[in-house]
Amino acid sequence: MGTDESPNQASINRSENSSRPDKARSGAPAAGEAVGDRFSTDEIFQRVVATADEEVDSRTIKLYLSGLAAGFAITLTFFLYATTKAAFPNDTTGLLAPLLYPLGFVYIIMGRYQLYTENTLTPVTLVLTRVASIPSLLRVWVSVLAGNLSGAIVGTFVLANTGVFSLAAAGAAVTIGFDGIQTPWWDLVFKAMFAGWLVAGLVWLEHAVRDSISRVVLVYLVIYAIPASGLYHIVVSSADVFYLVFTGNVALATGLWEFVVPVLLGNTIGGVFLVTIINYGQTQNRFPESEGPRERLTLSDWLFKQRVSKPRE
């Protein structure tokens, strides 16, 4: 005789299996436990941690090249923003020029490129739980930001020295850059804080959705809000400055200090403090249950060494 299950037992087994949330290879949940298509705060955090693990394990050159690709994509955002602004010169609402601004960010997030402002959330989660060291975080930040800025430099150099921009769009690009530089230093910091809050919050929400269409809509709406409300993003702002430098409108040191530095500071504060730490504080089960325990780094290792603690089998 065979050992086939009875119909009732098979039905029970199928019911039990269907009630268990799916798991990704990393152990992070692929479906919510209470409601399949919605994640709890802990489950979202676990998905963020899985992404963070991948990032801190990446080689420096890989982070840089991924950041470089993101810098090129941001050049697309800069180009489209200036072009659309030139197309609607009489728009007093400021709502038409940003219509194509989010496109570069869609490329970045859907293509899984590395963007500095995204990294104010994901690897910071591992540092807060003290399974990754601060130097490991700084390595990721420096590598990604260097790649982002390199891509923006190359892209804006091409725009400044070729005929890609129309005359009207080139004038609009200069206006955008000067508007930023002429904004008071601390106003830029606070504007950038809100932008950093939006982008890091976007990364958190992006880990809470499960289909591509929802991601695209989410990215578009959140990123559109940045230029539409007069906020500033570090890589786009850097592209503004580099374009002004390449067209001879401003000195590099002036552009960096008056625009790039306050925006970088504000984005970092907004992403780390307004999103990451708050979300961290409301979670309890921060690692997938399928993982083994992770050893917390010693204070010395956490502060001074390139260390990442891995799950024990």
Rank of each mutant, 00 (worst) to 15 (best):
Y107A: 15
G111T: 04
S212D: 15
T162G: 07
A173N: 02
L115Y: 06
Y116D: 00
L149C: 05
V217F: 14
P123I: 04
T175S: 13
T156S: 09
L159M: 09
L100H: 03
V216F: 04
G104R: 04
R210E: 14
L100P: 02
T183A: 12
N90Q: 14
D187K: 13
L138C: 11
V216N: 00
D211H: 12
G201V: 00
P135A: 11
F194I: 14
E206W: 08
K191F: 04
I176D: 10
F178H: 13
A132N: 05
N148H: 00
S143R: 07
A200Q: 02
F105P: 01
L137M: 08
L96W: 09
G180D: 01
R112W: 09
A132K: 01
Y107Q: 02
V124A: 01
A172E: 11
N119V: 09
V154E: 00
N90T: 13
V127L: 13
D91F: 08
I181R: 10
V131D: 04
F88V: 13
Q114A: 13
V144N: 06
M193N: 02
V154N: 07
E118Y: 01
A208M: 09
S136F: 05
L128V: 14
L95G: 01
P102V: 08
G163V: 00
M110F: 10
P135K: 14
V142A: 13
T120C: 13
G163A: 06
V216C: 11
R130G: 04
W141P: 08
V127I: 11
L103F: 15
L145Y: 15
F194H: 00
P184V: 10
E118M: 07
N161A: 10
L99Y: 03
P98C: 09
S133N: 12
L198H: 00
S136K: 11
T175E: 15
V164R: 00
D211T: 12
V209N: 12
V203P: 09
R210W: 12
G155K: 08
I134H: 06
V142L: 14
R130H: 14
P123F: 10
T120K: 02
T129Y: 03
V189G: 08
V158Q: 05
A192K: 02
Y113P: 06
W185V: 12
R112P: 06
T125V: 15
R139Q: 12
G151H: 01
G196R: 00
G177M: 02
W204V: 01
T117L: 00
L198P: 01
L138I: 15
A172M: 00
W204G: 10
A132G: 12
A168D: 15
